[in-house]
């Protein structure tokens, strides 16, 4: 299988503080990959470096065989990458409907895999909230809207940063259900989360980042073999 994303030796700094110390990994097309790690270890920074929001000082990001390390963020996103940020990033001046309308577009090949109606079908709760502003929603609804907004750009690679953080268990379950649906539709997905049990069952590949370095990279089987080490690294 072809790699959709190859990350080589990312070195990223915020001002003086060195966050990523040579992060490298590959992601195969159609796979779902988890990135785990404690808070402050560089998970979100890795994602931001891939997207160009926190440009790396050195290293490269190869997406669909093309080096995108120097591309501006908006151009990367136009190549069918979608990002659901930590904290969801709602616009308080737009309604739910307007959020979805502004994001919707065909992908770079001119295909529409996700329509407005389909997204509302996946997230029926949003249907009742169409005229509410983005910030007048519950945390779970905001998360659904953020994912729905991302899907409407018809991505090939979906990046979810802490999609279930701070949500009630029932809502979490609903979100995981949807992520499974997305996985089944063939979209490559990177998930940053801490729920090792769900990730283990959902993802084909697992990456563990500790202090800005990849310390584990393997499939679910290898993950189970090294469970003790992984859990130790995730424990606070």
């Amino acid at each position: 299988m072809q790699n959709i994303l190859e990350v080589h030796g990312l070195q990223t700094l915020y001002g003086e503080s060195h966050i990523l110390h040579g992060v490298s990994f590959d992601i195969k097309a159609g796979e779902t990959v988890s990135i785990m790690g404690r808070n402050g270890m560089g998970k979100s920074t890795t994602l931001k470096s891939i997207l160009g929001i926190a440009p790396p000082r050195s290293g490269s990001v190869i997406y669909k065989g093309e080096d995108i390390t120097r591309l501006p963020t908006w151009k990367r996103m136009r190549q069918d990458i979608a990002y659901v940020p930590e904290g969801r990033g709602m616009f308080h001046n737009l309604t739910v409907k307007e959020h979805l309308q502004m994001a919707a577009r065909k992908n770079s090949r001119g295909e529409t895999n996700w329509t407005y109606d389909q997204v509302l079908e996946v997230f029926p709760r949003l249907t009742e909230r169409l005229t509410n502003k983005g910030t007048q929603l519950s945390g779970g609804e905001q998360q659904m809207l953020a994912i729905g907004r991302a899907l409407l750009t018809n991505p090939d690679l979906l990046i979810l940063d802490e999609a279930t953080e701070g949500l009630a268990p029932l809502i979490r379950k609903e979100i995981w259900q949807v992520i499974r649906q997305i996985k089944d539709s063939g979209v490559s997905t990177i998930i940053v989360d801490k729920n090792i049990k769900v990730l283990n069952e959902l993802c084909e590949q697992h990456i563990l980042i500790v202090k800005g370095k990849v310390v584990f990279n393997g499939d679910s089987e290898t993950l189970n073999e090294n469970k003790e080490f992984i859990e130790q690294s995730l424990a606070v």
Partner: peptide, 24 residues
């Protein structure tokens, strides 16, 4: 229009609008 929505979005949060693939 959808242009207006993007304008609203980038006034509120330019980084987020960029991350949705818009050249602000």
């Amino acid at each position: 229009s959808s242009f207006g929505r993007v304008i609203d979005a980038l006034k509120e949060n330019p980084d987020r609008a960029t991350a949705l693939g818009y050249n602000i």
